[in-house]
Simulated scan of single mutants.
Amino acid sequence: MTTEIKNVSKFFGSTHALKSITLSIKTGEFIAILGPSGCGKTTLLKLLAGFDTPSEGEIFIDHQLVSEKNQSTPPEKRNIGMVFQSFALWPHMNVKDHIRFPLLHHRFLQDDLKINIENRLKEVLNIVELQSFAERMPHELSGGQKQRVALARAIAPKPALLLMDEPLSSLDAELRMEMRREIQSLHKVTRASIVYVTHDQDEALALADRIVVMNNGQIQQVGTPREIYDKPNTEFVATFVGKANLIHGEWVDATTFKPSYKNIHSHWAKLDVSADLRKKDLCPIRPEQFSLSYTGEGIEGTIKNVQYQGKEIHYTVDIGPELITIHEDSQYDPFHVDDFVYINLKQTIKSDKPAVTFR
């Protein structure tokens, strides 16, 4: 049951919230829509849910046209499930009644579920591990348990498309990690098609089959988490996902880069960088791909900030025109604020030596 978004745009007065969005979601695929506040990701989710209509374009769910210009099939007539940021639980219903409700009222409920509602109810309770909480009311549940109820209610009728609007943002850090595992397990069991809106890059990288990175109402890049992280197409993707350093210099050829900073004579070779970034004479380097030293050659700089992060130490180094972020293993002797250091790419080459692979 695929979902197709074709050339969808959305205007709010003079504001162009979405600009010609085209995206195909495969059956059973987990798609994360990632971007900063105001990028259009929630607007897109509302159009998929039927809470709003597109100004231009079309949306198909399970080959059925559900949205077109200024017309939209209402949410209750779409084969979808929805998980809200605020849980949206009904205070007068216990856990079991929350899950039973869509089984009684969902328009697209399959015949086998209609005749086995109680069996499906028990099955869903087992999936989200809430068997012993079936009779509890929302006010008797923890934040994580409430989120499980919201997930259970959404998956109970086996919708063609499951929409999640930043479902973990109201939870504390430890609980968010736990719920990520729950959602991964849930997807593995149900194989539901999921569209998951988030501004948290860690969530997107951990959960999604593919990530849709958005900014200013446009899709910047679509790819697997590894593709997005290892080969960002644009400056925005490079700096928003993984916080890459954008190094200025000159591309000697399609895979060899010469940084343009004083006291560095190395070429960085066998790099796989997008054509868009090469045209701008930029090379995205992740913080963990750099190393620091007190002697030798490299990009010169002064350490301005040190943050201990357990297995890593995060350094901010002032190189004059800009700041560079570097992550080093904390098992090594730490550098200190105001230390003068040299920055090198791990596995660099000299310009007069044979190329070696950098990964």
Rank of each mutant, 00 (worst) to 15 (best):
K231H: 07
A192Q: 01
E203D: 06
W251N: 09
F236V: 07
E174I: 13
I264W: 00
A204N: 01
H267Y: 13
E227R: 04
H265R: 10
L186F: 06
K243C: 05
I247C: 14
F236A: 06
Q218T: 15
V197H: 04
V197K: 01
N245W: 04
I264G: 00
L175R: 01
S193Y: 03
I211A: 06
I228L: 06
N245T: 05
K262L: 10
V195R: 01
Q184K: 15
N233M: 14
V197I: 14
E182S: 07
T198Q: 05
T255L: 08
A254H: 10
H267K: 05
H248T: 15
H248Q: 15
N245L: 11
D209C: 02
A244G: 10
K188M: 11
I247W: 04
V195G: 12
V212P: 09
D253Y: 04
E182R: 04
R176G: 12
A206M: 05
L175G: 09
V222E: 01
F236Y: 06
D230L: 15
G217T: 10
G249L: 04
L175S: 05
Q184G: 12
L246D: 05
Q220Y: 02
W268V: 09
V252G: 10
L186I: 10
M179Y: 04
V252Y: 08
T224Q: 05
V237D: 12
Q218A: 15
P232T: 09
T256K: 07
E250V: 13
E174D: 14
P225K: 01
K258T: 06
R226F: 11
F257N: 13
A206Q: 02
D272Q: 11
V237G: 11
T255A: 14
Q218D: 09
R191L: 08
I211G: 03
V197S: 07
A192T: 14
V237K: 08
T256L: 11
H267C: 09
F240C: 11
G217L: 05
V222M: 01
R176K: 12
Q218F: 02
P259H: 01
H267A: 06
T198H: 01
Y196P: 00
K188P: 00
V252K: 13
M214F: 08
H187K: 01
S266V: 00
K258N: 13
A254C: 06
F240D: 12
E178A: 12
H265F: 14
S185E: 07
L207W: 02
K258M: 15
S260M: 01
V222N: 02
N245H: 02
H267S: 08
V237S: 12
I219M: 00
G242M: 13
S185N: 12
E174C: 08
E178H: 12
N263K: 07
E178K: 12
A244R: 07
G242R: 12
L205I: 15
